[in-house]
Design a protein around this nucleic acid. Structure first.
Length: 340
DNA sequence: AAAAGCGTCAACCGCAGTATG
DNA sequence: CCATACTGCGGTTGACGCTTT
């Protein structure tokens, strides 16, 4: 037998609340607490359903409700949280004292969403319309590489990542046809100087893509490894945007035959929490990833620097494995809503 | 001045998850 | 284990007020 909607009962009022009704509800809850919402209307002398009373109280009459315009800080908080959580209005509301989920939802739909659209930002994905020239610029490459290195460093996977990054940067540089005059012409002065610097450091007259990539990574390694590794929240936030790697380098993410190398969210212990996962490798040992890693040559794990200049044979096999590592995507792997 | 269009937001609806007997 | 009750959530609606034509 199905359950009838509570407001289908005859004689119950719907629509806007009158000041008298509000006062009755406030008086009753202040004296007795709300208790069972179902039973409340009768006890409080209201011709409303319990659901309507609860909504009126939580969204309007509650004493700790903050009314008035949203501040700039609140607005920024909403945008950041929405990027992480999506339309989880109640979760967002818990981070904004005095604001209700309904109020935040309304504000999003009437103000923020439109503003983002005007700015060319997709309000669902929070990504801009991709601008390939800036996306493939050396400075953007550097920041993206830094992000990924930090992220995988937190996961304890950094030693395995470098070769994959080398392959990725090579791919991007060739994709962007960086050696063509048109691409160079689009660079700003600083970027052109950077590129020239790679050539000079390596004393290369006619650099290969691999040599160029090595120079790029070597040049930025110190900076990359220093940037923000302690700020896990920031890295996680940024990581939610890393899908662009897949969008523009699809071949890098081709699934090859060894499906057992792929780590899925299901294989992780759902009871584990975020800090534990990022504290080190202990949680990772509980999933199939460990068995995948155990087949990796020990040298590639013990020495981060060896992979960059290792032989192409080793690099290829490591790249193959590392490609698998990139297949688990942070937003799917980590259900952030559980931690917010 | 009146009608139309638009923006805002309180309130409703239906569904899903959880509690209880 | 199942049926029912209750609660909370997110999507949607519609009344209202303001602006534009």
């Amino acid at each position: 037998m199905g359950r009838a909607p509570c407001c289908d009962q005859t004689g119950l009022k719907k629509g806007p609340w009158t000041p008298e009704e509000d006062q009755k509800l406030i008086d009753y809850i202040q004296k007795n607490g709300h208790g069972s919402w179902r039973a409340l209307p009768k006890k409080a002398g209201l011709a409303r359903c319990g659901k309507s009373c609860r909504l009126r109280w939580t969204n309007y009459l509650r004493p700790d409700i903050k009314r008035g315009r949203f501040s700039f800080e609140e607005e920024e908080t909403i945008i950041q949280l929405h990027r992480l959580l999506g339309n989880k209005w109640s979760a967002i509301a818990t981070r904004l004292p005095g604001r209700t989920d309904n109020e935040i939802k309304n504000y999003w739909n009437t103000h923020i969403r439109k503003r983002l659209v005007r700015m060319g930002i997709d309000p669902v994905t929070h990504t801009s319309q991709p601008d390939l020239s800036s996306l493939l610029s050396p400075s953007n490459l550097c920041s993206q590489v830094a992000l990924l290195l930090n992220l995988y460093g937190l996961l304890g996977l950094q030693p395995l990542v470098k070769t994959e990054l080398m392959k990725m940067v090579t791919n991007m540089l060739s994709t962007s046809q960086c050696q063509s005059s048109s691409f160079v012409n689009q660079m700003n002065i600083q970027e052109q100087q950077q590129l020239e610097h790679y050539f000079q450091v390596q004393q290369l007259q006619n650099p290969t893509q691999e040599a160029l990539t090595n120079a790029f990574l070597d040049d930025h390694e110190a900076v990359i490894l220093q940037t923000g590794a302690s700020d896990q929240d920031q890295i996680l936030q940024q990581a939610s945007q890393t899908r662009l790697w897949q969008d523009f380098i699809p071949d890098l993410y081709d699934i090859s035959k060894n499906d057992d190398l792929i780590v899925s969210a299901n294989e992780l212990d759902p009871a584990s929490d975020l800090p534990q996962l990022f504290d080190g490798t202990t949680e990772m040992q509980n999933c199939n990833l460990t068995s995948s890693l155990s087949s990796t040559p020990a040298s590639s794990i013990s020495s981060p620097s060896t992979n960059v200049n290792s032989s192409s044979e080793d690099a290829r096999s490591d790249s193959s494995l590392c490609s698998k590592l990139f297949e688990f995507q942070i937003p799917d792997l980590l259900d952030l809503s559980d931690y917010m």
